[in-house]
Every structure is written in structure tokens, then in C-alpha cells.
Amino acid sequence: MTNAAPILAIDGLTMRFGGILAINKLSFTAQRRQITALIGPNGAGKTTVFNCITGFYRPSGGTMTLVHDDGATFRLDRLHDFRICKYAKVARTFQNIRLFPGMTALENLMVAQHNTLMRASGFSLLGLLNAPSFRDAERDAIDFAREWLERIGLTDRADDAAGNLPYGDQRRLEIARAMCARPALLCLDEPAAGLNANESAALSDLLLSIRNDIGTSILLIEHDMSVVMEISDHIVVLDHGVKIADGAPRAVRDDPKVVAAYLGADEEDAAQVMEQTMEGGA
């Protein structure tokens, strides 16, 4: 039972901080089982869009509609805080990794399954009594976490503190943690930042497998154009809180407005430079 509607439709999203207009009437859609990239120069408002979608900011205006596979519809602009993840099933990662550093990799993935486990533990009462139903749920949760640890190649480090893992592993663990919340939409805030070429390639594979094998839709903020161009199905370009382009990767790459926004130079020079960087990267 697949749904044809886009997983996320954003319409007229506006965010004001005091007198500053961070996002101005932004509209775009993210298609189901696709990777949608949100790109733009620093300060364009990408992370603000994420914070609105994931319930950290309450938007000043506009609507954000999320539709699950089964047709269940959520107005993200009316949900808030933890409810976005709990009910609308939107999970995210952060630009500056936000793992639980003093907990093990496995524990991080267990925390992500909090709501499922909480229900199974009868809000702790059944859990305190060590009821069999809870033990089963706990075992399932550990199995699910183990599956993800294998997928990101961290099984051997499952019992190490997350804060002790190397940077690239932390990035992947954060994605796995978000996936353990079993999201319908996964929002990734610069997952490739700080990764070397090999790690970036591995990341691309991971994201493609999340899309293809699990069928989770992905919304991606990324500066690494090689990753964006390789895996995105659709790109939305933001500058100064306004959408300046929207389309397939190739079309967006050739859009002179995009090039100008990135390089701030006159459009023709910029187009050349852009062409070179992108081909070099891809």
C-alpha cells in the first residue's frame, strides 16, 4: 500500500527571529523514497528549515505536511518538540554531532527506541517486574540495534563509549541512531562534514541503501557536492532564506543563479569555476 503523495510538502514556510527574516515563504516537496538535498551557501537558512521541520522552532508562518505510507497525515507546524519524532516519525542528526558521549554505541541505539520500549515496559512497571513481554521487546530492540551496528560496521565497538569513537564512526552512529527511531523521514544535517574521501563514499553507499533497501525518505543538508550530486534525486537551493532553484541535480548544477549565489561573483566566471569543482568532485 504505497502512497503517491509526497512525503513532505512545505508551503510558504516563514521563520522570523525578532526583526530578522531567516526563511521567507519557502515552498518545496520531498518525494517518497527519494533523497532530497537542501543546499545553499552558509547562512542561507538550511539548518533553520530543519529546526522547523523537526520541531525545535515553531515557524512564524506556513504549513508543513507529512504523509506516511499508510496515508496518516501530520501537520508538522502544529506538532512540537518530541512529538514530531514520536508521532510523525521524523528523525534527524545534527551538524555538530550530538551523541550521548558517556553511553556506549549500543546504548545510544537503545535510547533511540525509547518510545517502543517504554510502552513494552508498561511505563516501567512491567519492566521492574521483569515481565516476559518486556524481555522479548528488549531482545528485539537489541537485535535491531545489532543489525544497525553491523550495517555501519561498528559491531566490534558496540560496547565502547560513543565519545571514544573516531569522528567518522560517530557520524555514522548518529545516522544509525536516528534510523533506530524507525523514521518515515530522515533529516541529515551535513553528514559528510569532516569526512575524508573514503568515508564520504561509504556514507553515500549507506544513504543509498537506506533509501533503496529500507525505503526511508531522506532530506539532506550537505556542502560536499560530490555526495550531493551522486546520491540526490532532487535538489532545493536556498539563499538568504529564499528558494532560488529546485530540480534534478543536473538542472540545478547548471543554473546560473545557483552558481552566483555560491560564489557571489559575476555569473559567467562563477559558472566556469562551479563546473570544474563539480566535475572534479564527482
Partner: peptide
């Protein structure tokens, strides 16, 4: 913050 993003009340 990470807790909230994971749906923890």
C-alpha cells in the same frame, strides 16, 4: 536536545 530529537518526552 538529542533526546528531544529522538522523541523522548
Amino acid at each position: 536536545v538529542a533526546c528531544r530529537a529522538l522523541g523522548i518526552n
